[in-house]
């Protein structure tokens, strides 16, 4: 529990990759015994590599989080209001004439 699907897939992908590495080492050992030249890894290892690559890529893209929009007109990026310039706040405004009818007292 606690692990998302993406994370599990990532772990599986890394396992597949390390198995491919292990198989290659084994294959080279076998070649040495049979005294043949190493021309390339066997097709199963290549397939494993590709599969591991896809799994790891997918995990790397999903686990850290979702993508954020870079469009200036997307909901998150579109600026609809500028902040009120609070550093230049002026208290001498029309609210002074209509004080807030609030019964506020600090009770400490």
């Amino acid at each position: 529990m606690g692990f998302s699907l993406g994370f599990l897939v990532g772990v599986f992908g890394v396992l597949v990759l390390s198995h491919a590495a292990y198989s290659t080492v084994q294959y080279r050992g076998l070649l040495k015994i049979m005294e043949e030249e190493f021309s390339g890894p066997p097709i199963t290892v290549v397939a494993e590599l590709l599969l591991g690559l896809v799994f790891s890529l997918w995990a790397a893209l999903t686990v850290p989080g979702t993508f954020l929009s870079i469009h200036p007109h997307s909901e998150e990026n579109m600026i609809v209001a500028l902040p009120a310039n609070l550093d230049f706040m002026v208290f001498n405004h029309r609210g002074k004439v209509f004080p807030v009818e609030m019964d506020l007292k600090l009770k400490h």
């Binding site: 609070l86 706040m89 208290f91 609210g95 004080p99 807030v100 506020l104 600090l106 400490h108």
Partner: peptide, 19 residues
């Protein structure tokens, strides 16, 4: 405190700034 000044509740603002 700043909000109280903006609403002209100066007593409240004074208490807060004293604290």
């Amino acid at each position: 405190a700043v909000a109280a000044m903006d609403c002209q509740c100066l007593d409240v603002a004074k208490d807060l700034s004293k604290l």
